[in-house]
């Protein structure tokens, strides 16, 4: 690891001030991704601003019946929080599908949003990568790209966002609270992460000096008909090849409202209003599920090794919608897929 200066932020304002004063500084909270990237020489911050002691660990009800989750709430604390388990079991399930017990005990809510891609070439400093070194080229296109994206890609980058938690947050219409040099603002999950376009070095729409302070969930948690179905190379402790967060509101055998978000297929959790519109107002039927799956993948493009993801994603969506409709969510310990 390269040497760096270390300082502790006294409060949020101090964190923002320290960050604005040094563009090559990084905030550190759980550190599970940043410390790893520093060991690989992918990240080379001159300063780490330790925010782990800031008072951002509360989970509180909001005045409109939602839940506000402090940015430093640990992934494990969030997954096992009684309110989250009871009202937002999709979020709890997605978090428990990710990483390991140890990592969930370290990783923060804000850090989970800000984790970087697991593209092999992003980690391999001996190869070109536009995300790591803008303008150097994309080694994944034409390279080993089994884990890479099939939706929303660009000629510059086909990386995926690796989070499970974020896929659930996207499906639940969460919002992200941030504080920066110009004050506070709220960003919908749909706009928090970006597509790579010609600036793949930017993962999110956070501005320089901005810090995530909380994630807010709206009142509706889809606690009855939901599932998080994650397909991966190992049964546990592996990133998703494809994952699906599905949440339905069912009334008299008809779908009143549907939420569908995909992980492992794009530079951000992938939602598509057109696919959800295919489901809304329709009876709970296989044909409807298959049509929605086809619509959400309509612009999918494979890059060779990851061609299989296009079929796999459609099958996983259909299976997930069935699990959600039947009220039999995927267990994250018994790995048999119902």
């Amino acid at each position: 690891m390269n040497s760096f200066q270390y300082s502790r932020a006294q409060d949020i304002a101090d964190a923002v001030r320290q960050s604005a004063a040094d563009s090559s500084a990084r905030f550190i909270a759980g550190g599970t991704n940043l410390v790893d990237l520093m060991k690989y020489d992918v990240e080379r911050p001159t300063r780490l601003i330790d925010i782990s002691h800031l008072p951002l660990r509360a989970v509180e009800e909001t005045s409109n019946g939602g839940l506000r989750i402090g940015a430093l709430v640990l992934n494990s604390d969030l997954a096992w929080h009684p309110q989250v388990k009871d009202r937002y079991p999709l979020l709890s399930s997605a978090i428990l599908a990710g990483a390991s017990t140890q990592l969930r005990n370290m990783a923060s809510t804000g850090g989970n949003l800000l984790q970087r891609t697991r593209c092999l070439y992003f980690y391999d400093v001996a190869t070109p990568c536009n995300k790591r070194k803008p303008g150097s080229g994309c080694s994944a296109i034409g390279g080993v790209n089994r884990i890479n994206a099939i939706l929303g890609t660009s000629e510059a980058c086909i990386a995926t966002h690796p989070s499970d938690m974020c896929v659930a947050l996207a499906a639940l219409d969460a919002t992200v609270h941030v504080t920066g040099p110009h004050g506070v603002r709220t960003i919908p999950m749909a706009d928090f992460h970006r597509l790579p376009g010609d600036t793949p070095e930017r993962d999110t729409n956070l501005e320089s000096g901005e810090i995530v302070t909380a994630v807010e969930l709206p009142a509706h948690g889809f606690r009855t008909n939901y599932t998080y179905l994650k397909i991966r190379d190992r049964l546990s402790y592996a990133f998703a090849l494809v994952s699906v967060a599905a949440a339905l509101e069912i009334d008299n055998g008809a779908i009143r409202q549907a939420r569908l978000a995909l992980g492992g297929v794009a530079h951000k959790p992938w939602r598509d209003p057109e696919a959800e519109a295919v489901l809304a107002g329709q009876p709970v039927e296989q044909d409807t599920f298959a049509r929605a799956a086809k619509v959400i993948l309509r612009d999918a493009k494979g890059y060779g090794h990851n061609d299989f993801k296009i079929d796999l994603a459609q099958r996983t969506i259909i299976r997930a919608l069935n699990q959600a409709a039947q009220g039999t969510p995927q267990s994250q310990s018994d790995k048999r897929i119902a």
Binding site: G30, G31, T32, D36, T101, Q102, L103, N105, M106
Partner: peptide, 27 residues
């Protein structure tokens, strides 16, 4: 592995298991 992938470095931090290789002692 020294990269949080194997768990050989697991210790209990305030009673909970973590990967000691992925955290800085100063924190």
């Amino acid at each position: 592995c020294d990269h949080g992938q194997c768990g050989a470095c697991t210790v209990l931090l305030n009673g909970r298991p973590i990967n000691a290789c992925l955290t800085l002692a100063v924190m």
